[in-house]
Design a protein around this nucleic acid. Sequence first.
DNA 1: GTAACTCGTCTAGGATTTTAAACGCCATGA
DNA 2: TCATGGCGTTTAAAATCCTAGACGAGTTAC
Lengths: 182, 182
Amino acid sequence: MSIDVGARLRSVRTTFGLSQRELARRAGVTNGLISLIEQNRVSPSVSSLKKVLDGVPMSLAEFFTLDLSAAPQAFFGTRELVELGNEELSLRLVAAQRPGRQLTLLHERYAEGAATGEEMLAHRGEEGGVVISGRIELTVGGATRVLGPGEAYYFASELPHRFRNVGREPCEIISACTPPTF
Amino acid sequence: MSIDVGARLRSVRTTFGLSQRELARRAGVTNGLISLIEQNRVSPSVSSLKKVLDGVPMSLAEFFTLDLSAAPQAFFGTRELVELGNEELSLRLVAAQRPGRQLTLLHERYAEGAATGEEMLAHRGEEGGVVISGRIELTVGGATRVLGPGEAYYFASELPHRFRNVGREPCEIISACTPPTF
DNA sequence: GTAACTCGTCTAGGATTTTAAACGCCATGA
DNA sequence: TCATGGCGTTTAAAATCCTAGACGAGTTAC
């Protein structure tokens, strides 16, 4: 399994400077279980993994969000800025090639009259943005609203949505969404 | 258990419009197991929960980060735009009050010479941004770089970082980070 | 040297999960 | 009316997890 619960748990436990027995005592499980989990000899039930993590303490969400390998790196400037789209709708995607990034950050530019398409978009996650210049019509789940410079939006991406430039000039937006569906 | 794996799974499954059998088929488990998990009659092993979520697909991290109470809603305009900071460094936080949001989206404005402070910042997560106007000096993990309009950055927030306006005019940035540490 | 402690690992068996197959219910249609 | 096929649930049996206790290795103290 690509999750490697064992390595994650061992990493967490040693980070907190605990022995298997000490963690087991705090968590109310046996030291043998900790050992078996860390060796990936068993795949713990959610309830027992939660008990174990309560001994640290750490939430399941944090536990599975841990990134073991990632040597943290930074990117600046325009090197990893990928240009997408066409004349109507151009997108500049920040840190496009970064493996396993948790965030999609976009610099969007809608030409006069441009839109995200005839169909409404719907996907998993959450997204938000800020309008830099121009005017954009945003439709989300039945509601429609026109936004100008300095205004912002935020919604659950499962709601059907659509963007359309209704102004007389190009419209620029900086937007972000997570998890990265782009 | 306060996690309520059952309700989470049922919520995920119905959001994607799948029946128990259809999800089971995609995940390579039996429909009975889905039923038992959703009723909290069993606490699934991590490996089987992962198999189930692979059928959606959704990661374990996302699954445990889900906020059940939050009915998907949209926000427009300036209503939930909270103003923070001072004259030196002003921040406008998008969808500030939204409970359980997964994204922090900021409109930042640095006055001439303003910085995020003497100390370097470091926290969990990832962040990125796009410069709208002005010039900002960004230091991340030893490296320093000055960015101008249209340029962008992206880095793991664990790396010590600091922003400073080194231009002759105010500097505006739209930035995003996840998970929300703000 | 050896006794007393800690460490992580292993094993048998009881407890729990998971499967495979049935169940009851509600539609749809011949 | 009676089949057909979908839905979620239930149930015995197989598979897996989890515990209690023992094991060998390493450290410290006498």
